[in-house]
Simulated scan of single mutants.
Amino acid sequence: MISRRGLLGLGGITLVAGCVPDAPPATTTAGDWHGTHLADGGNPLPDVTLIDQFGQPYNLATGPTTRAVALFFGYTNCPDVCPGILADMATAKRRLPAEMVDDVTLIVVTTDPARDTPEVLKEYLVRVDDSFVGLTGDLETIKPAAMSLGIDISEGKQLPSGGYEVDHGSYVMGFGEDRRLAVVWSQIAPADLKEDFERLLAA
């Protein structure tokens, strides 16, 4: 049974753990947003220092210097959902007007740091989009940071190969200049995500 937890600060929106597509949450979307917009803002980006794909310390709260941040928790051995989400994030950013492309930081924090070393993340993200910031670190640091945003992480089923899956929430989360959670996306087309990136930058 896949576990469910309330997304902290989202007034009852539910996250579904597991590397599978999430069902759309009960919407609180305002205006023309395609994702679930949080008019009053949610929890902040966690103030934790992890290691990026180049082996350098990176503070999740203070490291991004752009006006907006799009954050996803996933892992490189995810069989299908994570690669698709990361590709959609990259596509949406590339479709932004030229003057906005550098105003959004795309971040993926691994939910499987035992296998996702900086070197593994670097090789993986080069194939997706090398503008991503890929972060790894101790699971004991990553799990509370994820949970502060309502993302639960747990080891999933064992695979015949001897490996394992990792259960985790599969929402993409958007943060504005105040670094508080502003919008949550689930199962959204790149064109719609691109439009919401523009709204996030204009907010």
Rank of each mutant, 00 (worst) to 15 (best):
T36L: 02
T36I: 08
H37Q: 15
H37I: 08
A39E: 06
G42L: 10
N43Y: 14
P44N: 06
D47T: 04
T49L: 10
Q53P: 10
Q53N: 05
G55F: 02
Q56V: 10
G63I: 10
R67H: 14
R67Y: 07
R67I: 11
V69R: 02
F72E: 01
G74R: 07
Y75V: 12
T76K: 09
P83Y: 07
L86N: 01
A87I: 13
A87L: 13
D88C: 11
D88A: 15
A92S: 11
R94K: 13
E99C: 03
V101Q: 12
V101W: 00
D102I: 04
D102G: 14
V109H: 06
T110Y: 01
T111H: 05
P113F: 14
T117W: 02
E119T: 13
E123D: 15
L125S: 08
L125K: 06
R127A: 13
V128W: 00
S131A: 15
S131N: 15
F132D: 00
T136D: 00
D138N: 12
L139D: 04
E140K: 15
I142E: 01
A145T: 14
L149A: 02
I151Q: 11
I151E: 03
D152W: 15
E155G: 05
E155P: 08
Q158D: 08
L159R: 09
S161C: 06
G162T: 11
Y164K: 14
D167Y: 11
M173P: 12
